[in-house]
Amino acid sequence: MQTFRIIQPTPALKPFIRYYWILQDSTSGIVSQRTLPTGCISLVFHRGERLKVTNRDELQPHSFICGQESGYSDVTSTGDIEMIVVVFQPHAAKIFFHMPVTLLRDRNVAVADIENPALRDLAHRVEDSENHDICIELIENYFYKCLMYGTPYHLPRLAEVVRHINNSTQTNIRALSNIACLSEKQFSRIFSENIGTTPKDFMRIVRLQRTLSVMQHNQGIGFAQLSYECGYTDQSHMIKEFKLFSGYTPKEYIARYSPVSDYFTF
């Protein structure tokens, strides 16, 4: 049996956290899934058995930060699943971890390996709590305490940059640096430190998510029209980029999976 639910953060945390999701799955047999880059950093708590990242041949830690990803991962269950996941706004994770989040790119970094006693304590309490509602309360209380120390000076300008990327199928580094009121060199450095990847790669990931979203909501769309709506130079460009991030061409992907993206939903 599988249950999945999304929980919205309190209004004060919404500028920093997109949502929480909780997955429980006690299905007999192995459950496998291919995950694609989402453009967001996540904080993951396993209260059940951990997942195995098969293409890296490693088990996920019990509690870990999942950094920005540059490609797909295949994950497989090793038993009953019970996960609580915090999905941050693309520009906001650095507030809570106090490190350049470029250090997390393409990594699952165990909370136990981070010099943050309060975060380690939170992980233990989430793992030991009686129910999910208590877990979410503990998580939100931790985030509120982090915000007591203030938010980074660059956060509002990065929020505007991300909003512009989300609303534009075509943009460039010069336009984004102008929105941020920074030189291109400063902008690229600050963007990477706070979002965890380069502006160019982040725009490519958002374009992938836009492609998945359009495919999800318009299943009969032709690939030529899809490439135009999502800002690719042409259909071959879209196919090349899609395969780079997913391991499949769009046609191969929809033959195996139902395209899903919530990037533009929350």
Score class of each variant (00 low, 15 high):
139 I>W: 03
70 S>F: 00
166 N>H: 13
106 D>P: 00
49 E>R: 09
223 F>T: 11
44 V>K: 00
174 R>Q: 14
227 S>K: 02
150 G>A: 14
215 M>Y: 05
49 E>T: 07
112 A>L: 03
51 L>F: 03
109 V>Q: 04
68 Q>M: 12
117 P>W: 07
233 T>H: 09
52 K>H: 14
110 A>T: 02
28 S>T: 11
51 L>T: 10
130 E>T: 14
240 K>N: 02
257 Y>R: 12
15 P>C: 07
159 A>N: 11
110 A>N: 12
110 A>V: 03
138 L>I: 09
67 G>V: 03
232 Y>V: 04
163 R>E: 13
21 W>T: 10
244 L>G: 09
252 E>I: 04
238 M>T: 07
201 D>S: 12
225 Q>S: 15
240 K>P: 02
52 K>Q: 14
2 Q>T: 11
93 A>H: 08
173 I>S: 08
159 A>K: 12
235 Q>F: 05
167 N>I: 01
266 F>P: 03
172 N>C: 12
164 H>M: 03
118 A>I: 08
157 R>I: 08
40 C>E: 15
112 A>M: 02
112 A>S: 15
65 I>K: 07
230 C>L: 05
224 A>N: 11
252 E>V: 06
106 D>Q: 02
3 T>M: 02
36 L>P: 01
141 N>G: 08
69 E>D: 11
190 I>A: 02
210 R>W: 01
66 C>W: 08
123 A>C: 04
221 I>G: 09
241 E>P: 00
65 I>W: 05
137 E>G: 12
99 M>L: 10
213 S>A: 07
73 S>Y: 11
148 M>R: 13
255 A>S: 13
150 G>H: 12
2 Q>W: 06
264 F>G: 06
75 V>S: 04
